[in-house]
């Protein structure tokens, strides 16, 4: 059984997750649309999930997958509240452009 099982180096997973995470950071910095920024945050969360599963597989410890499960739960709650805030923001400003939200600027 063991020799059938693969060997993908852990480095590859680290690199892939880093690339996906940086694409998420790029999306947050690059776009002005609040919905796209939310989606970029989801992308970052997913890249970290991938890294957690990879490390959990490499250590043979199932707890990493449980952490991924909890991350997904928190992400779902976060998105529900975040989208509600977005709807309220649209209702007040008629836009989802984050540059409109500058009232807290000193």
């Amino acid at each position: 059984m063991q020799e059938v099982i693969q060997g993908i180096p852990l480095n590859w997973y680290i690199t892939l997750s880093s690339i996906l995470f940086c694409i998420g950071v790029l999306g947050v910095l690059f776009r002005r649309n609040a919905i796209i920024i939310f989606m970029s945050i989801e992308l970052m969360l997913n890249s970290v999930n991938l890294l957690l599963v990879a490390f959990s597989a490499s250590h043979g410890d199932v707890a990493g997958q449980v952490f991924v499960f909890f991350t997904m739960a928190v992400a779902a709650a976060e998105i529900a509240v975040g989208l509600a805030i977005l709807v309220v923001m649209y209702r007040n400003t008629k836009s989802v452009d984050i540059d409109v939200l500058n009232r807290l600027k000193g």
Partner: peptide, 16 residues
Amino acid sequence: SLKAADKAIATPYPNT
């Protein structure tokens, strides 16, 4: 910074 991190192989769980 992670280049020299770990050359380990990500073996999946033994499927038994």
